[in-house]
Design a protein around this nucleic acid. Structure first.
Lengths: 218, 218
DNA sequence: ATATATTTTTAGACAAGACTAAAAATATAT
DNA sequence: ATATATTTTTAGTCTTGTCTAAAAATATAT
């Protein structure tokens, strides 16, 4: 049995090391989880004992195949629940995270499969992040940061890198959501801000903003 | 903050002492929760410290107003989730309990209110048990045990007292569910079994069975 | 009313998960 | 290469919730 706490560590390692295949440091995990390095060391040992992680003292951790699947399963659940919250229960995309953090730990194979079917097998969560399938596979989609797009090019918002409440509310205020068409009008050299056209309104966004919006050509 | 474990104790006391207004014994709680009396004593003290329970050593516990509301809230969540599972996610009434035991601890006011609305404000769960409202009030419905009904009378199944998987599967096998019409054909004096008519089939049920089915006149 | 049985509580121990402070290993800089 | 800084681990403590065994209180029976 994988405990709630173990699931959270697996998820952190999964996210830090691109789907868990890369070695990550104790401190990185501690920062991600807002805990202390010593707590991380303790837990890593438990994960290694359970064959969920590969661990070499002082060197870092990566997930085993089993650990990767367990982590992907938690992420799958998190994202499916987020879809339910937004599509059926009137949550906005900035309200779902906290609740999904709880729901992702509910243990029931049937529940998650039925939820998947009920939601019509969504491929992405409300922030444009891919939903792993039962085997833990994710569909890689072409996406680049808005900051990479050149002047006079048009693109479509397909996701966000930062999904904090503050950032999502900022996007809401400027009517930017998934599927929104964005045209780059101009880019400033000195601060790398850009002026963009969204729904025929011109707005100026900082580099920080354009660096946290994923878009595709179009 | 009420912890998961505390919520489970509150729920147990709530169920044992008709909505928590009655004093219940340490042993009764221990039995209900499949734990030891000493663990119960420990937890009762914590609940009393938090003003969720009234506790007098060696005398027993009851819930305070606050404790009763907290317990009713957990029961409300449990039963609403059960409705979701059955109505939307293809669970049968014997499959919902275990998952609802987990879901009932999810903390989000908005979630439970939206769920309530999404399900169209159900008044009962899939076993016919009433769903407390936000204030913890439950609608008392007229119901008697099938064993109380006289020969030649007809009635309608409105709930079950035992909602164990085994019993619910037994009812499924005999096509008895909520809303099913039942006519009492005859009752045996010596073992108190009865023959009933369900969907034009005659079946014989033991006292144990008739004692676990709630019905209303009709 | 006294002895016996049952219930409840206390005392002490344990596991999980987290923390602090100190020690050990690794990395960096001159 | 040696000193310094950083990272990681260890050792020991704390809290929550559980348990066992023993003690205390209450209930029951003769």
């Amino acid at each position: 049995m994988v405990t709630l706490s173990e699931e959270n560590y697996l998820k952190a390692i999964y996210h830090l090391g691109k789907q868990g295949s890369v070695v990550v440091s104790t401190n990185a995990i501690a920062e991600q989880m807002e805990t202390k390095a010593s707590s991380v060391t303790d837990m890593i040992k438990k994960l290694a004992d359970k064959n969920l992680a590969n661990y070499i003292k002082y060197q870092g951790v990566s997930l085993t195949k089993e650990g990767r699947l367990a982590a992907a399963s938690v992420v799958r659940k998190h994202r499916l629940w987020e879809v339910l919250l937004v599509e059926k229960l009137n949550f906005s995309w900035d309200e779902v995270h906290e609740v999904a953090e709880q729901l992702e730990h509910i243990k029931s194979e049937k529940l998650i499969n039925e939820l998947d079917a009920f939601l019509n097998y969504p491929e992405e969560d409300p922030h444009g992040d891919p939903i792993p399938d039962k085997e833990g596979n994710i569909k890689k989609v072409e996406k680049i940061l808005l900051s990479q797009v050149d002047e006079n090019q048009s693109c479509i918002c397909v996701g966000v890198k930062d999904s904090s409440t503050d950032f999502l509310k900022y996007l809401d205020k400027h009517h930017i959501s998934l599927g929104t068409s964005i045209k780059i009008i101009s880019k400033e050299k000195f601060d790398e801000s850009m002026t963009i056209n969204v729904n025929n309104a011109l707005i100026n966004i900082s580099k920080i903003v354009s660096n946290n919006i994923y878009v595709k050509k179009g």
